[in-house]
Design a binder for these strands. Structure first.
Length: 485
RNA sequence: GGCCCCAUAGUCUAGAGGCCUAGGACGCCGGACCCUCAUUCCGGAAACAGCGGUUCGAAUCCGCUUGGGGCUACCA
């Protein structure tokens, strides 16, 4: 039975690195009909950020990553917050103490700091010097009441081998490890201890996590062995780096799932993009559904090398999804972006028709919202480049008047009728059709780029079209064309 | 500093000794199409970090060098 976990620390928002790790866990679990556990690692209350846990869960859900057991949904191995598992940790801690595998250390932070200073000065690696290592329970009794931490008694000889599913056997000499802290003086367990206990007590079969944890793994193995726990399988997935190859941080722009959402990236696209960072499908096709990914997912195809995220490709992929997804899905997705811009769609043409015309010209929902704005708001000004190109030709004002007049008489308002009207008028005026089309697009949208004119006008409707063409004609004739930008 | 991981184009990657004159994707450049833009379609430039081995043969195996990353807390 495959059981995996994603174990975030609620100290911020859901990071794309974390999201990718969660995604790999989720895909692995689903592929093997296993169970996905969400565990909140909140032992360090000082670092906890209120609302972070809920935000992370919301971020995961928005991407379609769901869990079978967790703080919100419960499960047979709860509780799922480390802060609620104190009693459990205490039990294993006293077991370790009783068996002599852990010992009390009374060294003060000042003493430890002094040790480190000295070691650094001597060019030695900073490790715990072992001052309290051979203290006996009798010595402990003497120090009754003094604060102490619990340290694991790491064997000084030998080595620990991590069998990693992605990297193979990785060896760590015990000589380079030190007697690390299991439990702080205030009684809170420390990560490497709590993680080992939880992975065992939650019956986790595969620990799939970021590469930054590889160096911690021997410590967790040592804890597990001291407690006589069987070991889970480990798989350390490569990290996601910022474009300058450094660790991802706020200064690299959008790094959280929430920020990408705000920039108009669809969750479907983000998840698909993240999937390709560190994993490759067995076929040369990159656009795929979560269901397909579940069928294909395999740790053997996970890369060893850290990946750098590429905004350009994410945006391209988002564009693909904008075109691929059912129109209703895109309409729903763009609505909040319209609202945020005060674009009132109730008064204008049906949004689905508008989106159908504009979505293939957008890469993000922000762009899409801006691109369709003119359907609901007449242009206040006209693009400078277009004015120079199309509104300054001789007799353009009259030409626009003619168009308005012809359109006004049109009985059927659809693409073909509009096309015929423009053809006929162009012939009458001795012009090329394009010489009518471009000024009219500018008159109606204020821009030089956009959907095909006849499709656009068909959706915009006769009233609004004629009105806008007239208005532009008047401005041109009056020599008072408002210029945008 | 010590320990650990990694190394194919600007970026994501395929590649598990001969199938590689190294394949795909984004981006970039050029072209076709078109009422503009976008889409789409064609075409192009662009990589096996370096040096030594092993082998009949190395992007693939080994070593060293270089480079990048991680860990080294009473953080996770």
């Amino acid at each position: 039975m495959v059981r995996v976990r994603y174990a975030p620390s609620p100290t911020g928002t859901l990071h794309i690195g974390g999201a990718r790790t969660a995604l790999f866990n989720f895909l692995f679990a689903r592929h093997h009909q296993g169970t996905m556990v969400l565990r909140v690692e909140d032992t360090d209350q000082a670092r906890l950020i209120p609302g972070s846990e809920a935000a992370m869960m919301e971020g995961l859900r928005s991407l379609g990553i769901v869990w079978d057991e967790g703080p919100d949904v419960g499960g047979a191995y709860g509780p799922y917050r480390q802060s609620e598992r104190r009693d459990l940790y205490r039990r294993y801690l006293s077991q370790l103490e009783a068996s002599g595998r852990a010992y009390r250390c009374y060294c003060t932070p000042a003493e430890l700091e002094a040790d480190r200073q000295r070691q650094r000065a001597q060019g030695l690696p900073p490790r715990y010097v072992g001052r309290c290592r051979s203290l006996t329970p009798a010595d402990w009794a003497e120090r009754e009441g003094l604060p102490y931490v619990l340290r694991l008694k790491v064997p000084s000889q030998g080595r620990t081998v991590v069998q990693d599913l992605i990297r193979g056997a990785v060896e760590f000499e015990h000589a380079v490890l030190d007697d690390f802290v299991l439990c702080k003086s205030d009684g809170t367990p420390v990560y490497n201890f709590a993680a080992a206990v939880d992975d065992y007590t939650m019956a986790i079969s595969h620990v799939i996590r970021g590469e930054e944890h590889l160096s911690n793994t021997p410590k967790q193995i040592l804890v597990s062995q001291a407690l006589e726990f069987p070991l889970p399988a480990y798989a350390h997935v490569p990290m996601i780096l910022a474009p300058d190859r450094s660790k991802l941080s706020k200064r690299h722009g959008a790094t959280s799932v929430e920020e990408y959402r705000a920039q108009g990236i669809l969750p479907e696209a983000l998840v698909n993009y993240l999937l390709l960072l560190g994993w490759s499908p067995p076929e040369e096709r990159e656009i795929m559904s979560l269901a397909e990914a579940i069928g294909w997912f395999d740790l053997a195809r996970v890369q060893k090398t850290a990946a750098i995220y590429d905004l350009k490709k994410l945006e391209w992929m988002n564009g693909q999804y904008l075109r691929l997804l059912p129109i209703e899905r895109v309409v729903d997705a763009v609505r909040p972006f319209l609202d945020a811009r005060g674009i009132a769609v109730q008064a204008g043409p049906p949004l689905d028709q508008v989106v159908a015309l504009t979505r293939e010209r957008a890469r993000t929902l922000v762009e899409l919202a801006e691109n369709l704005r003119f359907f609901y708001e007449p242009p206040q000004a006209y693009e400078a480049k277009g004015v120079a190109k199309y509104f300054e030709e001789p007799a353009v004002g009259e030409r626009l008047e003619r168009v308005a007049a012809a359109l006004e008489l049109l009985a059927t308002w659809d693409h073909d009728a509009l096309a015929q009207t423009f053809d006929r008028l162009a012939e009458e005026l001795g012009l090329k059709r394009a010489q009518l089309i471009h000024p009219v697009r500018l008159a109606v949208t204020g821009r030089t780029v956009g959907p095909g004119l006849f499709e656009l006008l068909a959706v915009l409707g006769p009233g609004e079209t004629v009105h806008r063409v007239r208005r532009a004609a008047e401005a041109v004739l009056a020599g008072a064309v408002p210029i945008a930008d």
